[in-house]
Amino acid sequence: MSSSRKSLSSRCPREDEISELIFKLQALLPERRCRHLRRVSRDEVLEEVCSYIRKLHKQVDDTSERISQLLASTDLDADVLRSLLQQ
């Protein structure tokens, strides 16, 4: 085996490791946690994870926008608000 092929294969996770990681990802999804975890295709799990991450990004963006609006409409100092949010 060539050294490049050997180093590549030593870095790549095995099939069973990939399956276990996919199952762990599936368990992190809120809609999967509250019902019986069944094994689904990797594609389905990865699509759900991507969708969930997009949803979280939107929530962060919406929350940031709302905070910006609140800051603009109040006399609160940005540093005071930042310190309150970090608590």
Rank of each mutant, 00 (worst) to 15 (best):
2 S>Q: 03
3 S>Y: 04
3 S>T: 09
3 S>I: 12
4 S>W: 07
6 K>W: 05
6 K>T: 11
6 K>A: 10
8 L>W: 10
9 S>C: 12
10 S>R: 13
11 R>A: 11
15 E>V: 13
15 E>P: 08
15 E>H: 14
16 D>Q: 14
17 E>P: 01
18 I>L: 15
20 E>D: 08
23 F>Q: 06
23 F>V: 03
23 F>S: 07
24 K>P: 01
24 K>F: 10
25 L>V: 01
27 A>D: 08
28 L>V: 03
28 L>I: 02
29 L>R: 04
29 L>P: 00
32 R>H: 09
32 R>N: 11
32 R>F: 04
34 C>T: 11
34 C>N: 11
36 H>D: 11
36 H>M: 12
38 R>I: 06
38 R>N: 11
40 V>F: 03
42 R>L: 00
50 C>R: 15
51 S>A: 11
52 Y>G: 00
52 Y>K: 04
53 I>L: 15
55 K>E: 12
57 H>A: 10
58 K>G: 05
58 K>P: 02
60 V>S: 10
60 V>W: 05
61 D>W: 07
62 D>I: 06
62 D>H: 05
63 T>E: 01
64 S>Y: 09
65 E>T: 13
69 Q>H: 08
69 Q>L: 07
69 Q>M: 08
71 L>N: 02
71 L>S: 05
71 L>R: 06
71 L>W: 07
72 A>N: 07
72 A>I: 02
73 S>I: 01
73 S>T: 04
74 T>Y: 11
76 L>R: 10
77 D>Q: 15
78 A>P: 14
81 L>E: 01
81 L>T: 02
81 L>A: 01
81 L>G: 00
82 R>E: 08
83 S>R: 15
85 L>A: 14
86 Q>I: 01
86 Q>S: 11
87 Q>W: 04
87 Q>V: 14
87 Q>S: 13
